[in-house]
């Protein structure tokens, strides 16, 4: 790890004053489960690390008039254990529990889950975010068994976020603090497919801090997350799907389906979702939506298997939401 100076602010304003205009100047430290690994590999070499764990405004889960406010510093363990989350947003609690290590759940935060860097082995081994060589990404002709089946431009890595898909399905927004004041972004738009190695995969500037996540009321919504893992313990999903079904009686009024770990951002499957509208969910209907969700997949040389896994994840998430 490259040496850095450490700052431990107690207010958001102090923290903003300690951040820089480039990622080389300062990085934000929350749970540390991703940042420390990135720094040990010299993928991130910030001159300063700003610990945000003592920012009181970033803690806690509370009901608001319009839904739920989740502080960015809430840990995955706290999220999974929260009674409101478990009863009203099962997709969210299931996703948090899918991070299958007690230690990571105790350390990792909601904000950190959204802002963590991709697990792509080209990126983690210093080839850059897009692994570009001579104007082309190395991924399509290389080792791509865990890469995107929904690539975007030259971005073939997959978004590592576990909470992104269920939060997008539930219509969440993210609140971001900056010196020019706070701003809110729909979570769907917070994730962006980068166009070059210098860009980030989220809409966050080096001098901004994710402070909270706002989830609309989950009343009348059935939701679920289904992840496909290679093994039960300590592994990243190969594919995941989150669904949120707003019910009208026994029929689906409006559906949202979001795929995880298949593209450089969570992938919103709009056509699959609208195929559920006005229907009573059966296994056949779920299967039909699942097929629509992966219809546009463009698998690489080694990851065709992920198309089937993603399809199965969608089908099982729909059926789990209705169970």
């Amino acid at each position: 790890m490259q040496a850095f100076e450490y700052a431990n602010p107690s207010t958001v304003d102090e923290a903003l004053g300690l951040l820089g205009s480039t990622w080389e100047e300062a990085n934000i430290l929350a749970g540390g489960t991703d940042l420390l690994s990135l720094m040990k590999e010299y993928i991130h070499t910030p001159k300063r690390v700003v610990n945000i764990k003592n920012l009181k405004d970033l803690g806690g889960i509370s009901k608001t008039g319009s839904g739920l406010r989740i502080g960015a510093n809430v840990t995955l363990a706290e999220l999974a254990a929260n009674a409101d989350v478990r009863s009203e947003y099962p997709a969210l609690a299931q996703a948090a529990m899918g991070v299958s290590s007690m230690q990571i759940r105790n350390m990792g935060t909601v904000g950190g889950d959204l802002c963590q860097r991709p697990r792509c082995w080209y990126f983690r081994n210093g080839f850059g975010l897009l692994a570009m060589k001579d104007g082309k990404s190395l991924v399509p002709g290389g080792q791509n068994e865990f890469h995107a089946i929904f690539p975007a431009g030259q971005a073939y890595f997959v978004s590592a976020s576990t909470l992104g898909p269920p939060l997008i399905a539930l219509g969440a927004k993210v609140k971001i603090a900056s010196k020019s004041g706070p701003r809110e972004v729909e979570l769907e738009k917070f994730f962006v497919a980068p166009k070059d190695d210098k860009s980030r995969e989220v809409d966050l500037k080096p001098n901004e801090i994710v402070t909270e996540i706002l989830v609309p009321s989950g009343s009348g919504i059935r939701s679920a997350t289904y992840e496909v893992h290679q093994k039960d313990a300590l592994d990243w999903p190969l594919a995941a799907a989150a669904v949120a079904l707003t019910m009208k009686g026994s029929q689906v009024g409006r559906a949202r389906i979001v795929l995880g770990h298949v593209g450089p951002t969570p992938v919103v499957a709009s056509r699959a979702a609208s195929s559920l509208n006005g229907k009573s969910v059966s296994e056949a209907i779920a299967e039909q939506a699942a097929r629509a969700a992966v219809a546009g997949a463009k698998p690489l040389s080694q990851n065709g298997y992920k198309v089937q896994l993603a399809r199965v994840a969608v089908k099982r998430a729909i059926l789990a939401a209705m169970a």
Binding site: Q103, I104, M107
Partner: peptide, 13 residues
């Protein structure tokens, strides 16, 4: 009171 990975925590923290 919570189990954590000591390799992923800074001592100063």
């Amino acid at each position: 009171g919570k189990a954590v990975y000591a390799c992923s925590v800074l001592a100063i923290d």
